[in-house]
Simulated assay, not measured.
Amino acid sequence: MSRSRAATLRDIDEAALGLPEVTREPETGGRPVFKVRGKTFAFARDPRKDAFDPETGEPYDDVLAFSCTAEDKESMVSNPDSPWFTTPHWNGYNAVLLLERDLGRLTVDELREVVTDAWLAKAPKRLAQQLLGGS
């Protein structure tokens, strides 16, 4: 299986559930929330009025959120060609947003990196060090 193919929703599940101590709510189906030791690091967001289609004014119903560092957020959302975005509601939060419909703009490898970085942003330091091979 080529990991350079376009990413899908299933790839989020596989990437997240492949990391240590991750839980998914609900366990199958539905709009997932991924947690490490009770801390959310990635989730499918319910529609909100702050993230909307500029053409129709309708709230997006396919927003995904991923934790990140402030530096990564700035880098990810500053490129106008990037699928990543933020809204004023997310000012001050270290997280980026992505529309499910834009998942195909990422490769599996790119998505796996974002999911792993999101996990690292919320995982306890010792658990993160174990994943990274540190002591």
Rank of each mutant, 00 (worst) to 15 (best):
L99M: 14
E100N: 00
A15E: 00
F52M: 15
E27M: 12
P124R: 02
V77K: 03
D72L: 08
V114Y: 05
D109N: 14
R3G: 14
T69F: 05
L17S: 09
K73F: 10
F66K: 01
D72M: 08
V36D: 02
V96T: 03
L131Y: 03
Y60K: 10
A123Q: 01
P32D: 06
A118H: 05
E100P: 03
T23C: 09
V36Y: 03
L111T: 00
G92Y: 06
R37T: 08
G18D: 10
D81Q: 15
A128S: 08
S75W: 01
Q130G: 04
R24W: 03
F85P: 02
E14N: 08
W90I: 07
L103R: 00
L97V: 04
V77N: 10
D11T: 03
P32F: 10
F52R: 15
V22L: 06
D62T: 03
R45W: 09
A6Y: 13
Q130D: 12
L97W: 05
V36S: 04
N91H: 14
M76C: 02
K49H: 15
R37A: 08
L127W: 04
S78P: 02
E71F: 07
D102E: 09
G29W: 06
A44L: 13
E71Q: 13
L99Q: 10
L120I: 06
G134M: 15
R48M: 07
R112N: 01
S4R: 01
L98F: 04
R24K: 11
Y60M: 07
F34I: 08
E14Y: 06
K35C: 13
L103G: 00
N94H: 13
D61V: 02
T40D: 07
A42G: 06
G38K: 11
A44R: 14
R48P: 02
T87W: 01
L19N: 07
W90R: 07
G134P: 11
D117Y: 05
L97H: 08
A7M: 07
S82L: 09
L64H: 03
L64M: 04
